[in-house]
Design a protein around this nucleic acid. Structure first.
Lengths: 200, 200, 200, 200
DNA sequence: TATGAATGAGGGTTCATTCAT
DNA sequence: CATGAATGAACCCTCATTCAT
């Protein structure tokens, strides 16, 4: 049902990002998305099961691309600390590069609708695993404390990045998000670092 | 029009918490809340401007009570570090004590509706100020690094607590949230602590 | 949900009969029925579960009233033959008295929709039982042949009346339906009558 | 535009019968019929004006074939009574031989849609004329009463066969329809027979 | 001839809100 | 103050039909 390729599929996803960002999820009528994508209302249902599926797909596609990009970049990193620094930078850079996407990801997608939350779970878990991979690696290499609770550490890392990003979006972006990456890194690193680690 | 007190006012707020927690935001119709509160549909409009006002009031009341309680408790604390520890414990304890409230606060109220987000802003800011007060105090007393970015530190503290709490709610609470407080504190403290501070 | 009494309930039923008769089932939008009944669209859903329920209820109410009336009248009849005669007359008279109802019953309600057919089944069965009662009685009294297949006899009686009525409706009623009752009775009676019965 | 012959024309008709029988009229989408027929959606519109035209054609073709077969067989009959007996047997046999067709003819095609009813009229009239021909003949030969109302007699014959067939389809065919033919004939014959006719 | 992707009009239903009682 | 019957605007989705290939 959902043809994953083709211009239309992407066009609808991108249109949804824009329309939702500008109008809010509850005011993002299917007809609005269709118009923005330059297709008929019915066409959306050739590519997506329903409106929720557009949302979920949007999240999956965007998150999938982001995670793939992060994974690629992380391979070039020497240690876990460097990986963490790069993760934070990428996370912020990505959101700052696409203001519509940022709004949708940080604000609009925090839907309570159980179906959407369910569909979003998997990509979020993949991101969690990625972050936990960095933490575990740091513990192995001795960069991070050996007694860290991996899950808690991940929750701190993600929670912090997420809150910083959300505040940035809510502030209507009067400052640079990416510019905060180094300081956020320093904060988080100190929380994770092995004792003898002269951070900075 | 909107009387801020009276038995029914509270009854409606509490009913809203329960109904939203059990049915999800999108299935929390006014009539359901009215039934749960034991009043007629129309009565709700004697105490609240509209449905949004119920949600915003709910958030304000609950958050206000929580902040007041936290402020009271924090006065008994010797230092900023101790205040931070107690804040985390209170934050988690409060949520764990009321599962309906936890669901509503962590999941259901993260609505995109701009009016609601707007109405929620003020109590959230009050909480932010409270957290920033702890950070500032720690910087003054020398417990925390003097070069902290107060806002970033606050975002890390709140973002971490929030993410830990959200994961706990999403996990259907198969473990104790309050029990995580000490370890979360240790993580956050290390991020904030002045260098010579042999944490624990 | 479906308050069985009250002006509105009846008004909606009657409006549905009229709108369906004039526009056909597929062009009988809920909003049209509501307008005809002088209520808001949403009001219909205070009295009926959905559009199908209006149809089914319409059939049940009208058929129920008709069956009750028939039963009342049949009690005054001396024998089964007289009952049959009166049944046919009542059947035709009722339809002729209400042209909208006739159209709906004979044409519009022959829907294939399984839910509607299901909802219609019971009243139809009640009518079948009533007719079979007459047949059985006639067999007992000796008015009718003793070797009749009750079900087949009923199917002939109902099928004949139904077809005569349908043709009448389809002909746009250029002749009197009730006037046909005696001749229809004579035909049917001959099929059922015991041999020595000099009917004609 | 609408070619009345060709493999695909037939294939689409047969597919429509099957799809409608299995899914009901309201769930017999053009695309389903096309898939069942092994053609593209658009191809249907090379052979039929629209969906209604498929249904009407279906009815015309099937009814036409049936009427032709009946006419052929009736020529071999000695008298009107024998013709009537054979008509009933053929009517029932045909339906019992093709359960899909039976469902479509007795249940699914009783649509209220005025265009379809209109398109169905002609073949039905042909069948009516055929039945009335038998009645008239019987009156001429003296087998049937001379004072019969031909139209009423036809309505009784058709109405009875139709009702018996419909009940059979609705009963999910737990018994043989064709086996009922003799008894149905006996009933109807008695209604029509001239007085001195020792029937059974 | 044949295809099937694209179209877009149309409608049943929900539910926040009102107001006569 | 309180009620709850009534309102009616708003929207997602289906599917018959078209037309460029």
């Amino acid at each position: 049902m959902a043809r994953r390729s083709g211009d239309k599929y992407r066009a609808i996803i991108e249109a949804a990002v824009k329309v939702i960002a500008e109008n809010g999820y509850h005011n993002a009528q299917v007809s609005k998305i269709a118009r923005e994508a330059g297709v008929a209302d019915g066409t959306i249902y050739l590519y997506f099961r329903n409106k929720e599926d557009v949302l979920i797909s949007l999240f999956r596609v965007k998150m999938g691309e982001f995670i793939a990009a992060v994974k690629r970049e992380l391979q070039a990193c020497a240690g876990a600390a460097e990986q963490l620094a790069r993760l934070i930078r990428l996370h912020f850079t990505r959101l700052e590069a696409d203001r519509h996407l940022a709004t949708v990801m940080q604000i609009q997608l925090r839907q309570s609708d159980p179906v959407i939350r369910q569909g979003i779970t998997e990509p979020l878990r993949a991101y969690s695993r990625l972050i936990e991979g960095i933490v575990s690696r740091g513990m192995e290499t001795g960069e991070f404390r050996p007694d860290l609770d991996v899950r808690l550490a991940r929750q701190m890392i993600f929670g912090t990045m997420d809150e910083v990003a959300t505040c940035w979006v809510m502030s209507h972006r009067h400052y640079s998000l990416a510019a905060l990456a180094p300081e956020v890194y320093r904060l988080l690193f100190r929380a994770l670092a092995a004792k003898d680690n002269g951070s900075s």
